[in-house]
């Protein structure tokens, strides 16, 4: 495989809150390749959205990245000044959000919002930009693009709004699209259409997509690779088929067992006992250990990365031999 587009190493993110310091990310390792489709999956609060925001340097107030690196085409974004990041955002890395109703500005038309972004990174003459805008709307398969340019977000349906958001994200030729739960708030049928669209765009536009979701089935249908997140750590990563059908990490296994689609009929759903840690306690060792049925003494140490198969990695002591590989 060629050099990854994005390499995240040991990313640690903390938030200062009234209750104390919350450890949101505890050493995230990720690779995203060109034209890759990486799924970042985990329960609510595991840090998947924060990972996406960290890549763009948009960590909310009160948050601080205390260590780690995020290399985009070799450059560590965490060392770059804000002016550099403003060039990266939108033009090299773009993002679409969960609820298109709130991520589009209600007081501007779709065309105006497209134009604002294009004007920022690739300014051109008015009619040139309008033509590009029309092209973009066609690429995201919106019907009657000329009319849509002059409509306001509240006049569009959920699916159309999301397509418009995707068009805005793609307007400046980004290499990586971070999609944070892009279909969660949409109807099921529309979900399938949008996921289809994203898959197609990957090929036609040559972009890589980081698909952040809590829904394993979305990952199974659309992604090539997947990383499973628990309490701010990657516990398992690799090709989708490998991870989902030959899950190694106890959490991944439990997650799959709890999923209605993969359980057998008539059997009760197997919930995972215990609750997700609040993040207020600093992490020592494996974050899943308190709930893991296979927890051992050594799990109080940070689990090393073990290669179970080519490109399939697990962070668990169960898979390390005596030397720790």
């Amino acid at each position: 495989m060629d050099q990854p587009l994005v390499i995240v190493r040991d990313l640690r993110l903390q938030f200062r809150t009234y209750a104390g310091i919350v450890h949101a990310l505890n050493g995230i390792d990720l690779e995203i390749y060109e034209q890759d489709m990486l799924g970042l999956v985990g329960e609510t609060g595991c840090g998947k959205s924060m990972t996406g925001l960290s890549i763009l340097g948009l960590v909310p107030r009160g948050g601080e990245i205390v260590s780690g690196s995020i290399r985009f085409r070799g450059e560590d974004l965490l060392t770059k000044p804000e002016s550099y990041m403003q060039q990266v955002r939108g033009a090299r890395i773009a993002m679409v959000f969960q609820d298109p109703a709130t991520s589009l500005n209600p007081l501007f038309t779709v065309g105006q919002q497209l134009e604002t972004v294009m004007q920022r990174h690739h300014p051109a003459a008015k009619n040139e930009m309008r033509d590009r805008a029309l092209e973009l709307l066609k690429v995201v398969e919106l019907p009657d693009p000329a009319r849509i340019l002059d409509t306001y977000p509240h006049e569009l349906s959920g699916g159309m709004k999301q397509r418009a958001s995707i068009a805005i994200a793609l307007s400046c030729g980004a290499d990586l699209l971070i999609a944070d739960e892009p279909t969660t708030d949409l109807d099921v049928t529309v979900q399938a259409q949008i996921l289809d669209l994203l898959r197609r765009l990957r090929e036609t536009q040559g972009i890589a997509i980081l698909m952040i979701t809590h829904d394993l089935s979305v990952v199974a249908e659309t992604c090539q690779r997947v990383a499973v997140l628990y309490a701010g750590q990657v516990v398992e990563s690799g090709p989708v088929d490998d991870v989902l059908f030959e899950a190694k990490h106890p959490y991944t296994r439990a997650l799959l067992k709890a999923s209605p689609k993969r359980s057998s009929r008539g059997q009760p759903l197997q919930a995972i006992p215990g609750t997700v840690p609040s993040g207020l306690q600093p992490l020592e060792g494996c974050s899943f250990a308190p709930r893991c049925p296979h927890a051992m003494e050594v799990c109080s140490q940070p689990p090393p990365r073990a290669s179970v198969a080519p490109a399939h990695a697990v962070y668990c002591f169960l898979y390390t031999d005596a030397e720790g590989t």
């Binding site: 990266v88 955002r89 939108g90 773009a94 959000f97 709130t102 991520s103 589009l104 500005n105 920022r120």
Partner: peptide, 17 residues
């Protein structure tokens, strides 16, 4: 605090804009 402002930041728009 609205999401559409976060989206604007994510698109790399300047502070003035």
């Amino acid at each position: 605090q609205q999401k559409y402002i976060t989206a604007a930041w994510a698109a790399g728009l300047t502070r003035r804009t």
